[in-house]
């Protein structure tokens, strides 16, 4: 214990480029999985890198990408949000109702989705941070509140999304599909967030609540803020869903709680909190989405596809969790 052994961290000088290539074990798992699913996709679907294919693939990923970043922020802060899916549903039906198919009201719709997400997030944050209920069960309960609220706003699937949104979402900007840019936007937003004092504090609270409290971090406020930020990202996910499907559906987020958590785990974010990055969650979401396209292109019968993807996801989660624990040592 007297002199610590020269670790890789120490051997590589601060500020050198190698620093950017020293990843933790769980990051390597994420990168490895991403390469494998991409390779499989390309092998099975030679048209994968054409703009048409990229547009439609990324258009399908994008909602989950935002939901995964939302979940990532909460999980890094040591919490959990099982209500992400119904926040997405609620924000989407509110935005849909506000826009009412009018292209001129897209801007208000965007604002409405984000504000709805922020309010829902603030409710979660208040319950978890101030009232101090266990995040798992508290957000499980708010999940049904938000899901019910979505049904109140839009009792059954329907409605029309302004055409500008749907066509814009599938168009190209200087040769790059908008849906790809939107996924890039998610990464940029997270990167910007990671430069804020808030995100630093979120990581600290997730890493060790009591230590953060002793280190002058306003823990309760930070916890609330993490759910609010997540709500805002959920609002963006709702917009992506609207743009992708062209109509409203109050049940749209039902699988998103599981998918966002799976994406977070696959992205190398420790569920114990404090560790990982929202960019990992983006990768996790893409891995998850590509697993299902791979299965369909492999010709797995529809009735078996869900079982296959379920087993693959559980296996991948197990791998990530085990590797992430090895990192901790």
């Amino acid at each position: 214990m007297t002199t610590p052994p020269q670790t890789t961290v120490g051997a590589i000088r601060d500020g050198s480029w190698q620093r950017y290539l020293t990843f933790s074990l769980s990051t390597w798992v994420t990168i490895g999985l991403l390469i494998v699913v991409t390779a499989l996709n390309v092998a099975l679907q030679p048209t994968f890198f054409t703009t048409y294919s990229l547009t439609s693939n990324f258009a399908t990923f994008a909602p989950l990408v935002f939901a995964a970043v939302a979940q990532a922020v909460v999980v890094i802060g040591g919490g959990l949000d099982l209500s992400i899916g119904s926040i997405v549903a609620l924000a989407s039906v509110v935005a849909l109702t506000v826009m009412d198919g009018e292209p001129s009201r897209v801007a208000i719709g965007v604002l409405a989705a984000i504000v709805t997400g922020v309010i829902a997030g603030a409710i979660n944050g208040f319950i978890v941070g101030v009232i101090r209920l266990q995040p798992l069960i508290a957000t499980f309960a708010t999940n049904s509140v938000f899901a019910g609220a979505a049904l109140v706003v839009l009792p059954k699937p329907g409605g029309m999304v302004p055409s500008t949104m749907t066509t814009g979402y599938r168009s190209l900007v200087i040769g790059i599909p908008v849906s790809v840019l939107i996924v890039v936007l998610a990464i940029v937003l997270y990167w910007l967030l990671s430069r804020t004092r808030l995100m630093r504090h979120i990581r600290a609270v997730g890493g060790d609540r009591s230590a953060a409290f002793a280190s002058l971090v306003p823990v309760v406020r930070v916890q609330m803020a993490s759910y609010i930020v997540a709500g805002a990202f959920a609002g963006l996910a709702a917009l992506a869903i609207l743009a992708n499907t062209g109509s409203g559906d109050p049940f749209v987020g039902s699988s998103m709680a599981l998918d966002s958590i799976a994406a977070v785990v696959l992205g190398g974010i420790a569920l114990a909190g404090g560790r990982g990055s929202g960019i990992g969650a983006v990768a996790g979401a893409i891995i998850l989405a590509m697993v299902s396209t791979v299965l369909s292109f492999m010709g797995v019968p529809t009735t078996w596809r869900q079982l296959a993807s379920g087993v693959i996801i559980v296996a991948a989660i197990a791998l990530s969790v085990v590797m992430s624990r090895k990192d901790q040592r």
């Binding site: 266990q134 508290a138 309960a141 019910g148 609220a149 049904l151 009792p155």
Partner: peptide, 27 residues
């Protein structure tokens, strides 16, 4: 309607949790 019933059961759970399921304070 179904929607309000879902909301109500969520709220009931939250209220009861708040009554006897709160976690420890930091200070």
């Amino acid at each position: 309607p179904e929607s309000w019933r879902t909301i109500t059961s969520g709220v009931v759970l939250l209220v009861l949790l708040g009554m006897y399921g709160r976690q420890r304070k930091l200070r």
